[in-house]
């Protein structure tokens, strides 16, 4: 049977801190993103080369895409939403590479993979969701100051008070929905691939692998797009509160 574990395995400990296989993959993904970024922008010219063209197409395309959602705030929020997209996409796709989840070592009877898809670990997805939610609240407060807080705590009217509680619950539930949507999709995909590879190792897993590539892209898009939408809503709400006094 293939090795399937809901939680990421602890590979080692560094100064008492646990190092999971998902954390190692996260570092790998970070390394890939940083090296590719460096290579694509180290010698930029007005007439772009191949790598620069790809980088320009990718970043320019993302900028225009998120610009349609966030409007005039695109310059403020672009680094966050673009990083979410690129990081999640890279993490999802790296999780599909051969060796991830299959290369590892045995602790007696128990197999511990050296690498695990970064987004197939709840620590990563919850961290991303928390980061996104904190950023959303930050931009809300940044746009309209303390007035933004009235969205959650408004004692002027009983209806507004209960609406505030609902808003608060809604914000907290967004973290959970963000984190579990991404984790669920990617983890389910990895389980599916592992089971298919175990049952029929040749050719048959290929369509599923293709589908997982697509799912990885869609999940990255959904996560970053929803963050952009919530950011815009928070900023718009803040602006509205600010205008109404």
């Amino acid at each position: 049977m293939p090795h399937i574990s809901l939680a990421a395995e602890i590979v080692t400990r560094l100064a008492g801190l646990p190092i999971s296989n998902a954390l190692i993959t996260t570092w790998l993904v970070m390394g890939i993103l940083i090296i590719l970024s460096y290579l694509s922008t180290r010698s930029m010219t007005m007439v772009p080369g191949r790598i620069q063209s790809v980088a320009e197409m990718l970043v320019g395309g993302l900028y225009d895409f998120f610009g349609t959602v966030t409007g005039t705030y695109v310059n403020d929020v672009f680094p966050l939403v673009a990083s979410l997209f690129l990081f999640i996409l890279a993490a999802n796709w790296v999780g599909l590479l051969p060796g991830v989840g299959t290369v590892g070592f045995f602790h007696g009877e128990e197999f511990t993979p050296l690498l695990r898809g970064a987004t197939a670990d709840l620590n990563t997805t919850v961290a991303l969701a928390l980061f996104a939610m904190i950023a959303i609240q930050y931009y809300g407060f940044k746009t309209s100051g303390m007035h933004y807080g009235k969205r959650f705590f408004n004692v002027g009217n009983p209806i507004y008070f209960f609406l505030g509680i609902l808003e608060l619950v809604s914000e907290l539930s967004k973290v959970i929905s963000f984190a579990f949507r991404l984790f669920g999709n990617i983890f389910a995909g990895e389980v599916l691939l592992a089971v298919m590879a175990f049952l029929m190792p040749f050719v048959v897993p290929l369509p599923f692998l293709t589908m997982e590539l697509f799912v990885g892209f869609i999940q990255a898009l959904v996560f970053s797009m929803l963050t952009a939408v919530f950011l815009t809503v928070a900023v718009s709400h803040g602006k509205e509160v600010h205008h109404n006094g």
């Binding site: 970070m30 961290a127 980061f131």
Partner: peptide, 13 residues
């Protein structure tokens, strides 16, 4: 691990 991933993502951004 959660904190480490938050820091990792902050570094990436």
């Amino acid at each position: 691990l959660l904190l480490a991933q938050i820091v990792n993502f902050a570094i990436i951004v």
